[in-house]
């Protein structure tokens, strides 16, 4: 009886994981990548024409970002509606 209960718990947990965890993880990853884009904006905004009084010191961190730089510029310049983007993430209809 006890074993049967444990077994069914495991099945339920597997189901829940499959149903929600993967989706949740991808939402969190998206959130992290958005925050990272914002972070890069603080550093390299002047590449896009936003003056940054600290750009000289920001250059020091550039070597760590060179690989991401091109895709970041593309992403950040087509960011039109943050609301729509966020809503899309949660399967809402827009």
């Amino acid at each position: 009886m006890k074993n049967k209960f444990k077994h069914s718990l495991a099945v339920i947990s597997d189901f829940l994981e499959g149903a929600f965890k993967v989706k949740a993880s991808s939402i969190i990853r998206k959130e992290a990548s958005d925050l990272n884009d914002d972070f890069m904006l603080l550093l390299f905004g002047d590449f896009l024409g936003i003056p940054n009084p600290f750009s000289y010191f920001a250059l020091e961190f550039l070597p760590l970002f060179v690989e991401e730089l091109e895709s970041w510029e593309k992403r950040i310049s087509i960011r039109k509606s943050i609301v729509a983007e966020k809503a899309g993430q949660y399967d809402f209809c827009c």
């Binding site: 993880s25 990853r29 959130e31 992290a32 925050l35 972070f39 603080l42 550093l43 600290f54 010191f57």
Partner: peptide, 30 residues
């Protein structure tokens, strides 16, 4: 001035890292 700028950067970066940590509970490579 520079200190407050770098403080903000560190704060942001930690936020990114924390979120990645949460996501990485599922993803080993991350």
């Amino acid at each position: 001035l520079l200190e407050s700028w770098i403080e903000r950067l560190i704060e942001r970066r930690l936020q990114v890292i924390n979120l990645m940590k949460m996501a990485s509970k599922v993803d080993e490579s991350l």
